[in-house]
Computed example of a mutant assay.
Amino acid sequence: MRLIVGYQATPSGEDGIALAAILARTFNATLDICIVLPCERPVPSKAPVEVAYDDILVQQATEWLAEAMALVPDDIEAEGRLLFDESFAQGLIDIATERDADMIVVGAASDGLLGRHAIGSVTSELLHVAHVPLALAPRGTRHSQVERLRGITCAVGNRPGAEVLTDTAFELSTEALLPLRLVSLVSIDSRAAGEDTRTRAARERDMAKADDNLRKAFESLPSRTEVESIVAEGNGIEKAVSSLEWHDGDVLMVGSSRLGQPRRLFLGSTAAKILRVLPVPMIVVPRGVGDRS
């Protein structure tokens, strides 16, 4: 497995490397630590005429890349790369294609809460156009003592293409001998506060639908697969996610929105709500990423 790590010389960049190291140990992966520089930049008025600004930028980026490589643990194979593109996200996507990478890894924006996710401009762009799974590190992952994943949780939906997500989760859990947990989230935020007959009937329908989603997901997996299945409910998706038990070393896998193009990411409203309260890394899987047609 090969992972592309988008690095910027910020704590967010360190978080991305920390998550990439955890994933690399878990899946025996190699890393490409990448800094993306703009193709062309104007020469600042204060710079000496004989000094090309691009040379100054490359020199600084080379130093940043050396610092990034120093963050990679000795037991993990990694290469540092300077890329040039007008878009940081597009540079990562292009190198992922060139290197036939399995995943892109990035850190959270610096304005998020510690231990939670925050979407910056690069991540936002990647979530709209990436063709490979995108792993998102919560803010502060660089301080984690976790060395490997301990388990994979897969959020199961009822939309077409959901089997691609469960297949990917199963493949990763099997490869790394990790326990797999299938979760169906039920939001009851549209229900009245009172437990009248109509409210109970609606809740029962939602729970039955969630159980059916889990059953279909389980049946799509190879026979004799041992997985945990659970329905989590709450007054809103955020509460449902928070009701689950999370441990250091867990990761949540979600599917791309149905609005996204096939083999492209698009973070839907439900996944965005999950991201706001999720205390562990998230991996977003594009629609049709496993299709062979």
Rank of each mutant, 00 (worst) to 15 (best):
D55R: 13
G112L: 05
D74I: 05
V132S: 06
A52Q: 15
R139A: 14
D102F: 00
G140R: 11
L57F: 05
V156T: 02
E86T: 08
A66V: 01
S144M: 05
L31R: 06
N158F: 01
K46A: 14
P44M: 03
E79K: 15
D94V: 00
L127K: 08
I152F: 03
S144R: 07
E40F: 13
R139I: 06
Q145G: 12
G91I: 03
L149I: 07
T62V: 09
L37A: 09
L65K: 12
T123E: 10
S121I: 06
P48R: 06
A89K: 04
Q60N: 14
E67G: 14
E50C: 01
L114M: 09
L126P: 07
A47E: 06
V105D: 07
C154K: 04
I119Q: 07
E77L: 01
S87F: 03
R148S: 13
T123F: 04
P73F: 12
S144A: 13
H117Y: 08
E86I: 02
Q145V: 00
P73H: 14
A70P: 02
A29L: 02
E125A: 13
E86A: 12
A70Q: 12
E40G: 00
E50A: 15
T141M: 15
P138S: 11
V132D: 05
E79T: 15
A137V: 05
M103Y: 07
V156G: 09
L83S: 12
A137I: 05
V122F: 00
H143G: 08
A89G: 08
P133Y: 09
G107W: 01
E77M: 06
A52W: 02
P160F: 04
S87K: 05
A29G: 02
D75K: 11
R150C: 11
K46C: 05
L92W: 02
G115N: 06
R148K: 14
P44F: 03
C39R: 14
I95T: 13
A70T: 01
I56P: 07
D111Y: 09
A61F: 01
G107P: 04
P160R: 06
I93W: 00
I93S: 09
L83F: 09
A130G: 09
A29H: 02
A70V: 11
A47M: 15
V51F: 13
V49S: 14
I33F: 01
A78N: 10
R41V: 15
G161L: 11
D85F: 06
D102E: 10
A137M: 02
V129F: 01
V156S: 08
I95C: 09
L92Y: 02
R41G: 05
L113A: 12
H131C: 10
F84L: 05
N158Y: 07
T123D: 02
D74N: 14
S87Q: 10
E77C: 03
M69W: 03
V164W: 02
G161M: 10
D54H: 05
E163Y: 01
E79W: 01
P48E: 04
E98L: 11
G151W: 00
P133G: 11
D102Q: 09
F88G: 07
L37W: 03
L126A: 02
R81M: 14
P138G: 11
Q60I: 09
V58G: 03
G107C: 05
F88Q: 08
H128P: 04
C154V: 14
